[in-house]
Design a binder for these strands. Structure first.
Length: 858
RNA sequence: GGGCGCUUAGCUCAGCGGUAGAGCACUCGCCUUACAAGCGAGGGGUCACUGGUUCGAACCCAGUAGCGCCCA
């Protein structure tokens, strides 16, 4: 047996264990296994990314679930991988090129894509290595990347299928455009924030025929083609059908009546800029108005005139100034707080832009995605969050999937010389002379296939047959509609109505110790790798899991990480104690009748805790799992059982060594999914086994439930705690031995005298024993020779405090028992309980009063 | 503007009809032979507010206030 140091040193253990697990193939799934399947796909991190604390939480949960599933004998798969992150990755490589003074256009498409692949091979997926430090038990043999050949084939297959079903179409629409990334974005890639801008009211036309409109984007007036008012608006009804002059341009534009204009908002009149605003685009469509594009893809004004060539943000004040000079400005509000969309990748202000793009008609797909949750084929956990999901899928806009990028899956559509459009499937050849669409697909299009493309779809692989639908998807509630809804749509569509997961288990965001969001600018970001280095991977994981209640945010701090490290160290030393004291796991557990009450008590508690842990896992209550095991391990096993076991072992009760071994074996296995490294190291030392990973998950042995033993040990704990309190109040040093006489005969505590004396450092009374203090706990009288004067004041204070509490309790219970309504309506067990409390309080009052009056006066 | 959630000890959170809990922080005493990353003892809360239901409310209902998140 190796000597264990007195402190747990995580760094020594972690790398060694992880490598052993991988080389032993413990993480490798076997689709041929007879066990019931348990499968999880890792939400693929961005290939450019590195491990942040949110990943650490997400992964800790998945690792806990899959480690436990393996121990339970299930055929377990946890599949890792990364996504190609179109915009982000292209940006990274473009920045590299910029350092060389090059743009992607200098290289050309083919060379650029080659360069991105090169970057990916050399620098991408750093996070995968970092996951190993956290202990993620993923099946590395099945690692996937969204641009792998197989996954690309899946993309092309589903595109073709959707296209043929008429669910993919190309249309000219207003889309979100990033003038920096030079690509379309989907709605969910736009982040809205309340920003300071301006609201300018502009008078169009002259005299009675004039009308005032307000805008936050004055420069877009150059592209106005109409003014719209509500048809029922008395103020403007007479103007509908007339024309006004658009300032600065001299163009005459019509005033139209449109039901969608809100007469109560602003002046009740809105300018209509169809090429640069989605609502205006709709108005224009209803009134057959033309679209006038006045800005290019970089946000530069292209309208002929003095503003041509100005950036949109330069053009805005210039246009306002010109309007002011022309006497057109009626009102200006500045700053004006309003919602502004930003590119989620580069934070540039998004510009609505009219362009020809590819879309998915989501209506049938989104309905199916909603129905799968409504009818319970997929369960969202916690259920409160299902409403958010429904709100999203039941009102989803068509999804813009084309991106004007080079890095990604190129749209498999080819155009013929006469404008023919052909969608090309995986094994098909485009007709000669046709040219492929230059755009690529949204990254979410391929990550939406993740739960089945990674298992080999569209091929009918053993993996797909065994592991789809996956058991649970673990992710943050923030991407419930981003990504979960997309996987649901595609999974149901591709897999004949089988949803991609049985359960979606949502967790929250990781926050700092004050519940504040972590942000670089605020400086409160925790780097999980830093914690792993300083506190260990287990402590990092345990800190996160201990705060993880379903769907709610997790607050963490340095102190808590230290606390978790301390817990790991506690387990370490407790197991060391067991080892040093001959704990054995080889022998069968003795029958109850050859065990002490302490042995039977801890086995009873183990059964209860094991069952509670299982129940908590079913509800993804990781905080509860962690808390249960923390308190069982520390407060019961370490603080009491180990102390009692010392006495029993010293007295030659060898069965205790078996119980000790049994309890630690089970405890380590229960803890393993949460803290894999320290438990592996200890379990190997304790049992000599190969790996705790392949040890069975402990069953709750309810045959060992023993309420009598629990009551007996509770009485011991009560007595010991009371006497310790007395000792503490009297200023007796913990180590100081005191002679005492205990009246245990005839009580259930009689057999525990040795243990009680040991825990309390009480010596047997000598011939000359002369007690200086006397206290009673329940029915036990303890007389002590404190070898000095008793601190009467301290003792009186103590007793008076207890007496006050007992009197209060007596009064409260008496009030209840004297209440006829209560006696008539409260259930019997509640009444009995109150009676019990009443009796206890009355007895305590008598005892305490007696002790008080026995105190020497003065 | 619409929707959802939260408000319990100094901080972060459990508890969700029958004696207010945990971790950390705090106070006091201890190197007691597994562990000072520790041991023992202790202090600390009109459970946001106002009404209602109930024998009984932190918990259920209604309203108020404050905070947060999502969507528009």
């Amino acid at each position: 047996m190796p000597e264990l140091p007195t402190q747990y040193a995580p760094a020594d253990v972690e790398t060694r264990s992880y490598e052993r697990w991988v080389s032993a193939g413990h993480f490798t799934a076997d689709p041929g296994s007879h066990g019931a399947p348990f499968s999880v796909v890792l939400p693929p991190p961005n290939v450019t990314g590195s491990l942040h604390i949110g990943h650490a939480l997400d992964h800790s949960i998945q690792d806990a679930l899959t480690r436990r599933a393996r121990m339970r004998g299930l055929a377990t798969l946890w599949l890792p991988g990364t996504d190609h992150a179109g915009i982000a990755t292209q940006n990274v490589v473009e920045r590299e090129l910029a350092k060389e003074g090059l743009s992607r256009h200098d290289l050309g498409r083919e060379a650029f894509v080659e360069r991105v692949w090169q970057w990916k091979e050399e620098s991408g997926g750093r996070i995968l290595g970092q996951m190993k430090k956290l202990g993620d038990g993923v099946d590395w043999s099945r690692e996937r990347f969204t641009m792998d050949p197989g996954l690309s084939r899946a993309v092309q297959t589903i595109f073709k299928r959707l296209f043929d079903d008429g669910l993919i179409y190309r249309a000219e629409r207003i889309i979100n455009w990033c003038p920096r990334c030079l690509t379309a974005l989907s709605d969910i890639e736009v982040e809205h924030s309340e920003d300071e801008g301006e609201l300018v009211s502009i008078r169009y036309g002259e005299g009675d025929a004039s009308i005032v409109v307000a805008t936050t984007r004055a420069e877009t007036m150059l592209g106005d083609v109409a003014v719209a008012v509500h048809p029922g608006d008395e103020r403007y009804r007479h103007l509908i059908g007339t024309k006004v002059e658009l300032p600065l341009t001299g163009r005459m534009i019509p005033i139209v009546g449109d039901e969608h204009v809100d007469p109560a908002f602003g002046t009740g009149a809105v300018k209509v800029t169809p090429a640069h605003d989605p609502n205006d685009f709709e108005i224009a469509r209803r009134h057959s108005l033309p679209s006038l594009t006045v800005m290019n893809e970089r946000g530069v004004i292209t309208a002929h005139g003095p503003f041509e060539g100005l950036d949109r943000f330069e053009a805005r004040p210039a246009v306002v100034a010109a309007l002011r000079a022309d006497g057109r400005i009626v009102a200006e509000k500045r700053p004006y707080l309003h919602s502004v969309g930003h590119c989620s990748r580069c934070k540039t202000v998004v510009e609505p832009r009219l362009s020809l793009q590819w879309f998915v008609d989501v209506s049938p797909l989104a309905k199916a995605a909603g129905d799968a949750v409504r009818d319970g084929r997929t369960r969202i956990h916690p259920p409160e969050l299902a409403k958010r999901y429904f709100d999203w899928v039941d009102d989803m806009h068509d999804w813009c999937i084309s991106r004007q990028l080079w890095w990604g899956h190129r749209i498999p559509v080819w155009y013929g010389p006469e404008g023919e459009v052909v969608c090309v499937g995986p094994d098909e050849e485009p007709p000669a002379g046709y040219a492929q669409d230059p755009d690529v697909l949204d990254t979410w299009f391929s990550s939406g296939l993740w739960p089945f493309s990674t298992l080999g779809w569209p091929e009918q692989t053993p993996e797909l047959a065994k592991f789809y639908p996956t058991s649970v998807l673990v992710t943050g509630y923030d991407i419930l509609f981003f990504w979960v809804a997309r996987m649901m749509m595609f999974g149901l569509y591709a897999m004949d109505g089988q949803p991609p997961f049985r359960v979606v288990a949502l967790h929250g965001m990781v926050r700092d110790q004050y519940g504040k969001k972590m942000s670089k600018s605020f400086g409160n970001v925790v780097d999980p790798l830093d914690w792993i280095e300083r506190y260990g991977a287990d402590a990092t994981r345990f800190t996160l899991l201990r705060g993880a209640n379903p769907g709610s945010d997790v607050a963490i701090s340095e102190e808590w990480a230290a606390g978790s490290r301390n817990f790991c160290n506690k387990i370490w030393n407790a197991t060391r104690f067991a080892l040093l004291n001959g704990a054995t796991v080889a022998a069968p557990l003795p029958d109850a009748d050859s065990l002490t009450a302490a042995d039977r008590w801890i086995l009873s508690r183990l059964a209860t805790v094991t069952r509670a842990v299982d129940a908590a896992y079913e509800e993804f209550e990781f905080a509860k799992v962690s808390d249960l095991l923390y308190h069982f391990a520390w407060d019961e096993v370490c603080d009491w059982y180990v102390e009692l076991a010392k006495v029993q072992i010293a007295s030659g009760h060898d069965e205790t060594k078996i119980v000790l071994g049994h309890v630690f074996d089970a405890l380590l296995r229960l803890l393993h999914p949460l803290t894999p490294f320290v438990t592996e190291e200890l379990w190997r030392a304790l049992t000599g086994g190969e790996s705790i990973m392949v040890a069975p998950w402990p069953g709750a042995d309810t045959n060992r439930s023993d309420t009598a033993a629990e009551a007996e040990i509770a009485a011991v704990q009560n007595l010991v705690t009371e006497v310790r309190r007395f000792r503490s109040d009297q200023g007796l040093k913990p180590g100081q031995r005191v002679a005492a006489r205990l009246s245990l005969a005839g009580t259930s505590l009689a057999s525990h005298e040795t243990a009680i004396r040991s825990l309390l450092r009480l010596d047997e009374p000598a011939e000359t024993f002369s007690p200086t203090a006397r206290l009673t706990v329940a029915s036990v009288v303890v007389e002590l020779d404190t070898a000095g004067a008793i601190d009467v004041a301290a003792e009186r204070k103590r007793l008076e405090k207890d007496l006050a509490a007992a009197r209060k309790e007596a009064a409260q219970t008496q009030a209840k028992l004297g209440n006829e309504q209560f006696m008539a309506k409260a259930p019997d067990d509640v009444v009995a309980k109150v009676r019990g409390r009443q009796a206890q309080a009355t007895a305590d009052i008598g005892r305490l009063e007696a002790q008080l009056s026995a105190l020497p006066t003065g």
